[in-house]
Amino acid sequence: MKSAVIVFPGSNCDRDLAVAFEAVSGRKPEMVWHRETELPEGLDLIGVPGGFSYGDYLRSGAMAARSPIMQAVAQAAARGTYVLGICNGFQVLTEAGLLPGALMRNAGIHFVCRSVALTVENSQSAFTSRYEAGETINVPVAHHDGNYFADAQTLDRLEGEGRVAFRYAEAVNGSARNIAGILNESGNVLGMMPHPERAIEKLHGSTDGRRMFEGLTEGLLARV
């Protein structure tokens, strides 16, 4: 599996994501700086990491979404390359128009940094194949702007098409319908606020995130 992790000024989960990709695939991802205009050839998976790209100026993810490399990421996504956006990465993907809706300030104002219970809603995607639908998993969140918003019509469409991948099983940030992660129409782009890359080793307190990376690797290796 050939992967890459995009690095913006202010990214701070890029190395964690690289460690997770390498841990399950045995292959180091390429780290790609935001000023690049092209991605390495033959990528199977692109990670858009968490952090505070461009200091969250204007809106979280807004500046990063307009950086040169994101054009290449959008083109790769359109060709079917898998794209995983976590936390700030999710914000970047919505700002870039690769996923619908927007992530707003948490309803309770506070930055939320703790492990939360998630319900796996869709276990049919490449990202969630190692989970059972309806299963509860524990994954950390660490965000200020994780309050998912979309109009009712968009929310109904996401639900109807099985594109809600994860839902919070508890009150976290005021997200519409407790949505924690969504898929794009073709199922090759996932954005989520919780951090699966922070739940891959026993020392992390949970290994529930590891199965996402294992499932992805398994699916991508089978494809080759």
Partner: peptide
């Protein structure tokens, strides 16, 4: 439309 406002919200 392209940057200053996010017209979703």
């Amino acid at each position: 439309r392209k940057l200053l406002a996010n017209t979703v919200i």
